[in-house]
Computed example of a mutant assay.
Amino acid sequence: MMKSIYSLGYIVIGLCGLLISYVVANDRIVTSGGSITEIVYALQAGDRVVGVDMSSTYPPHVKQLPQIGYWKQLSIEGLLSLKPTIFIGWDDSGPAQISEQLKQANIQTLYLKRVPNTLDLLLSNVESIGKAIDQPVEAEQLIAQIKSQVAQTTAQVKQYQHKPTVLFLLSMAGATQVAGKNTVVDSIIQLAGGENIAQHANYKNYSAEAFITANPAILIVTTQSLQAIGGLDNLANIPGLTHTQAWQNRRIIAIDQALILGMGPRVGEALTILAAGFYPSSDTNIDKPPSH
């Protein structure tokens, strides 16, 4: 009954006469952050989203929505022009004054932690968003689904005694950057059963010598990066890369950037893709447990 009352946009009054909640049927949600946008859609509230930031690329429909800039440098004018009833973004969104500006405009806000890039934080954010947009049941269901998908992959990769060494490359059209610790990529690689051999923090440019020294068994790139450089063969133009065992054995995994650059509700899909590349059934170089 409560759900039907909410959907009609009624005011719910407690016994003492105080206002408890007011939920409008035509909520107007603006999101900032690719994984935040994905969560809102996964909670079946996509029809209420009226604007997104530039990092939001999934589901494909969001590319047709008005954009409010990049999450680190949002356009307050563009955001206010969409007349949102709630704004959901990262707690380190920019510019710094945007929080006060939205408060002055009487717009409800929900700021979520972006780091550390862990599964637990993702699940916590799903729960918070579910409460904020009145989709708590859907949030519980999504949390259970994510947990199940992740558990299935992690259980499968535990059977392997040897973790392949991995490097993730980004922005290959310009400087080649490698994802290190304290990144979403690092967390996803670990969950999928790989070892990210980049020990530095965040992203770092690599020289030819750095690639040769690292000598990863597997390279991960985004499909968007491959498109930007004109295809897989053009990876050979990156100095030092052809000297790695990953290149020589053609162990290169291409994955959509929305799956690996953000810890979102499709993390289970990302793990499945990576685990299949880390531990292909035909690979005889991986130490598998003895059959009984």
Rank of each mutant, 00 (worst) to 15 (best):
L119W: 02
V184T: 08
T118E: 06
Q135R: 15
T165N: 03
A155V: 07
Q177E: 08
K147V: 00
A144K: 12
G174P: 00
P136F: 11
V166E: 10
N125A: 00
I143M: 03
K147S: 00
S148E: 07
I143Q: 07
S171H: 14
I129H: 03
A155C: 10
I143P: 00
D186L: 10
S128R: 12
S128K: 13
N182G: 09
G174A: 05
D120F: 00
P116F: 09
L121R: 05
A155E: 14
D134I: 03
M172I: 14
V184L: 01
S171L: 11
Q161D: 02
T176Y: 04
S148F: 05
L119E: 02
G180W: 09
S171Y: 14
L170W: 09
V157W: 07
V185D: 06
A144F: 01
A151F: 04
F168W: 14
T183Q: 06
P136L: 12
I143T: 03
G174F: 01
S171Q: 14
T183R: 08
G174M: 03
K113Y: 00
Y160C: 12
S128Y: 02
T183F: 09
I146G: 03
I133A: 11
T165I: 02
V184S: 07
D186A: 13
T176H: 06
L121K: 03
T153A: 06
R114Q: 13
V115H: 14
T165P: 01
E127F: 07
N125D: 00
A132H: 06
T165G: 01
K181D: 05
L122V: 04
Q161K: 14
N117W: 13
Q141S: 13
T176D: 02
K113N: 03
V157K: 08
